[in-house]
Design a protein around this nucleic acid. Sequence first.
DNA 1: GCCCACACGTA
DNA 2: CGTACGTGTGGGCA
Length: 915
Amino acid sequence: MMTRLAPVSESAKTAPPTPVSAATQDGETPRLLVIDGHSMAFRAFYALPPENFATDTGQHTNAVHGFTSMLLTMIRQQKPTHVVVAFDLDTPTFRSLEYTEYKGGRNKTPEEFYGQIDLIIKVMAAMNIPTISVDGFEADDIIATLSVQGETAGWDVLVVSGDRDAFQLITDKVLVLYPKKGISDIPPMDAAAVEAKYFVPPNRYSDLAALVGETADNLPGVPGVGPKTAAKWINQYGGLEGILDNLDSIGGKVGESLRAHVDDVKRNRRLNHLLRDMELPVALDDMVLQAPDREAVEELFDALQFNTLRKRLFDLFGEEEEHDDGEGHQVPAHQLVTEAAALKKWLAAGKATLTAVDVLSEPLGLQREAVAVALVRADSAAVVELGTADEALDRQLGTWLAGDAPKVVHEYKEALKALAPRGHSLGGVVDDTSLSGYLIQPDRRSYDLPDLSQMHLKVTFAAAGTSDAGQLDLGLEGGARFADAVQRGYVALLLSEHFAPMLAERGAATLLAQLELPLAAVLAQMELTGIDVSQERLDALLADFTAAMNAAQAAAFDAIGHEVNLGSPKQLQEVLFEELGLPKTKKIKTGYTTDAASLKALLEKTGHEFLAQLMAHREASKLKQMVETLKKSVDADGRIHTTYAQNVAATGRLSSNNPNLQNIPIRSEEGRRVRDLFVVSDGYECLLAADYSQIEMRIMAHLSGDAGLIQAYAQGEDLHRYVGSHVFGVAPEEVTSAMRSKVKAMSYGLAYGLTSFGLSKQLEISVDEARTLVKDYFDRFGGVRDYLRGVVEQARIDGFTSTIEGRRRYLPDLTSTDRQLRDLAERVALNSPIQGSAADIIKHAMLGVAAELDKQGLKSRMLLQVHDELVLEIWPGERDAVQALVVAQMGAAADLLVPLEVQVGVGSSWNDAGH
DNA sequence: GCCCACACGTA
DNA sequence: CGTACGTGTGGGCA
């Protein structure tokens, strides 16, 4: 049985950026296509109805669609060898600085246009077409400079612009395409066309425009003077200079008018003169038309829902959507193996061949248990059912699975967990495509095999039961599931092959092999182990919190004289702001916030009993709900087995779910009672919690190399006290707790991209005060300022940030023209290296701890990870040894310029082990 | 049943 | 207008 997998593109895997046109190689004259981005985007916007072009998320795309369509047409018709797009920035230009009304009076940009320029820039990036914008200058200046550069190089230049100022650029070699309305295929303007229309040569067009004026730019001309009069004067006096030299000899009413407005004319001429000698960030040769970045186009056009455009694009660039080379990319037939000898034979046939392993599993309590294993190679596949396998077959399989034979898996950790109840392990895993996909692109929503396959291979296949492809074997028992598993394995194999060069290019191969893959095995063990919870405490706590919640609710109802759903922010707004007429809080989408901070402020202001009870209810119901969730998560073994997600947090952190054990309360007294639910198992001595002290600040000290911070840590000082003493210029012992908490907030804030505004809000001080605080801080710790500044700059250049282990996070929005997006990307750029490096470090520590426990033959075990904390369970008598090895491994997990300090506590519950 | 907004717990 | 997560509720939609 062969299942056809479609569609598959061979070219997607190769496709280096090669020039599409052979013109330059043939020695023909290069043709440069220069596009005025904003003006063409606007043309497209008004040519297509926005209501017909929008994504599911409501983003309008009519301008993007029209622009892209226009560009494709242009490339097809004009056959340029080089293409570039110039954009304006919305920053002031030398023109607007000279003449504040420049381009004033324009209608407000329609709301539907927002975001579309950014999308166009993304489309250009995906098409490998360079875009240029230069602070302080307009696209017109860039275009003029490019025209001159192209002409000087002996190239043909075609300028596409909706701005008539471009006419001054026309020469023998430079033509202008000026679309009249929307996007039409009118022929380019040459010198003759300009003269036919305006009666002046192109190099005099600016003179004419200065006299006539340009309403689009809010540049009034001479009243009564139109193109005809202007052209007559220009030709009579040989240009504007001649006219100005002979002002007095021009008669009639128009002559008077000219003399009255001569200053306007001079200003117009200064402003419509285009700079032709700018320094541009892109060289002509880098504008060569390349094949599009197929992956990026797929992703972007998927998001934009541009299906016909995608086809047009790939057609234009000669890339087939489908490619059948008659070999490979066909899921191999599989044999159902029922005897050890048959398996042995199959395994021996491809001893050192990379094999994909797909584990089929079924629920077992709240966990899963493997029921079959599919082994997939490029040309053959075998399936082994675990339930029916005899001992010999099971042993044969188990030995091979645990052995060194190179394997590819998708979701290694899940495979390990499902195999464990069968007594099987999995060794020799060289790739887990859910992890390699993550390292390549850490901010994706999903790393499902079908998603990755669609994205990277353009191969569509559906999960079991939903796909036609998976239905072929319904007649055979379990056959469809097996075929599906084989298909998954085959796709994982293809993906792994596809990813290998990408990982290498990003320097992520080591990260995968040395960190993430071994960590997956450690995490699998931690998840399998789980943590014991006290059923008695659980029930008692649930009762307590429920009672507290009910009491608070009753008291709240009493306070206002009627019932209300306290869990409904909407109903609460009614009560608070209309019924009780309390002062309005911070505005949110649905009205005014009722969050804890605002309720607290309201309570302090008004002292209303309802507020106090509402807050009590909030806390109790939150905790009750959390305890309920935990109770539901207790497995048959009386333990809670969380699941760690290794590919969710874009920074490299783990996340925890089902249930989340990384957000168990610790700050409030009541909350800590939840932490007390987690107890040491029978037979073990105690729980041990070890956490890094201020790891993010230490990483900041390391990455910035700031001498002050490094010294503070080297001396083992109280960091915030030390910083406070320097910022406030007092002796360390004179740092008040208010001063300390201010610098503490700021120190941490800096790692998150905090602004003066944000700091002022948090510390409840004025923005000026906050600004001074930041300045004083940076005056004392200049290394931090330089580092933070450099991180963003470097990320803008590279397109990504890196952690100390080289884990990357791509931030395309750093160059977005959307302020909000750009600012957010900058804050992310500040935080990601720090948060991500901390994640790298504790991951290394976990590997070290696991290896050392194993090496020393200890029975103690690792249970939990909470970002900067590890929780272990100590076997009787091993406490000192484990504490020593944990401190040693955590401390040695990275070689920083400052020491890594580890705090340890032990106790019979997680709360007791805290400190 | 699905999705969003809100709220809130952690590092 | 400080980063990274997960989970629960209410409420509007289909």
